[in-house]
Design a protein around this nucleic acid. Sequence first.
DNA 1: CAACCGTAGATTGTCGACAATCGACTTCCC
DNA 2: GGGAAGTCGATTGTCGACAATCTACGGTTG
Lengths: 222, 222
Amino acid sequence: MLPAAGEFKSEPLRLRIAAVLRDAILDGDLRPGTPLTETALAEQLAVSRAPVREAIRILAKEGLIDTKPYRGSLVREVTRRDVEEVYGLRRLHESFAVERIVQRHATADLDRLAEVCTRMRGHAEQGDMRAVSVEDDRFHRVLIELADHELLLTIWIQLSHRVRQIMSLRNLQIEDPNRVVANHVAIVDALRAKDLASALARVARHVEEGSELVVEGWIDAP
Amino acid sequence: MLPAAGEFKSEPLRLRIAAVLRDAILDGDLRPGTPLTETALAEQLAVSRAPVREAIRILAKEGLIDTKPYRGSLVREVTRRDVEEVYGLRRLHESFAVERIVQRHATADLDRLAEVCTRMRGHAEQGDMRAVSVEDDRFHRVLIELADHELLLTIWIQLSHRVRQIMSLRNLQIEDPNRVVANHVAIVDALRAKDLASALARVARHVEEGSELVVEGWIDAP
DNA sequence: CAACCGTAGATTGTCGACAATCGACTTCCC
DNA sequence: GGGAAGTCGATTGTCGACAATCTACGGTTG
């Protein structure tokens, strides 16, 4: 098997740098408040300031970094309000996706969701919580994709980044994996049955649960 | 009266350039398909390529410009699908805002909306359709602001840009100004009465009308 | 001692030059 | 005449240097 095209013709530097920084932020390696100075990063990464600068701009647009003119950038603080807003919009957009899926009779594509569920169940049975949450992410990503709405997808991607960051900052996996699997299966079932009301309710409930789990006891930085 | 602070300490160049280009695109002066080369723009604006480059990146993130690595940028084409997607999300987000406004008992702030309506009515009576649509924009912007949701607002701003571009590309003002005013007043009334169902229906209807008016007869570039 | 001014250090903002890449055109060979 | 390799112009990608700006600190003055 030949390597993917992306391996040879490397992406522009700024995108690779942005990806590195993004992962570091989203995984909590760069905690909120950490200053990001162009010069220092450029030196560390052994590149010039130009691509670093552009990477920072990209992440700023994604809401991961705060930048003040002539003063520098730092990893954005995540307040309780941010968490509530992110989850609120997440619920809104997932509901929208569900509506469209039911309307568009995309029942055939639902197999993609079902596949994710079975993989998730496998990991759950083996107690691999890490893998479960990866499939969890994928599930919701696929759900949005099935809505067949480009603009929705781009907004969703931003939101999902924020969600990932929030989860890493509050690294608790106290959820019951079997329950998580059951929740997702229930959503697929409702979609298969084209039961819009039920699907909406289950999605809303699911997001709500996650939100409560995270918001509860969230402490804002002073 | 002293000049505003912004007059003295000028914003970073990239932002001013981005603003200029954005206005040009949104007003239809730069039509979709127009190539934007960094060198040419830099020369025209008598600046270096760096800030021009950043401005282009900003607009690319906003979905106004398409960029291909090493190939250049051009004003993004707007397809019928784009129009449908933009209006679909616009409706979604305005509905969300209405829900929050009713929930949060923000009835006092509704005066801000009422003010916009009266200004709009004034312009309508004088037949100044241009001014009416400016107030129209402001109305929906204020509506979103009243939802008191920062993330929603940032997404909305992007959406409103796209809406503005779409309107300029299809410069028809065949709407009856008095009808437009009445629609907005009706929304405020429903909000005042805390009649969520009615407010949602009226907003949805309003957006739908605008959408139909624009989508109808939209021709995609080949 | 307090308030103010000015300066120093750090950081971003802007610039011009060079390198890398892409797509189209040309040319060469069959 | 057709196909493929090579080349060329245009454009972006990257770089290092210099300028502009901000804040904090320290000195000065009443």
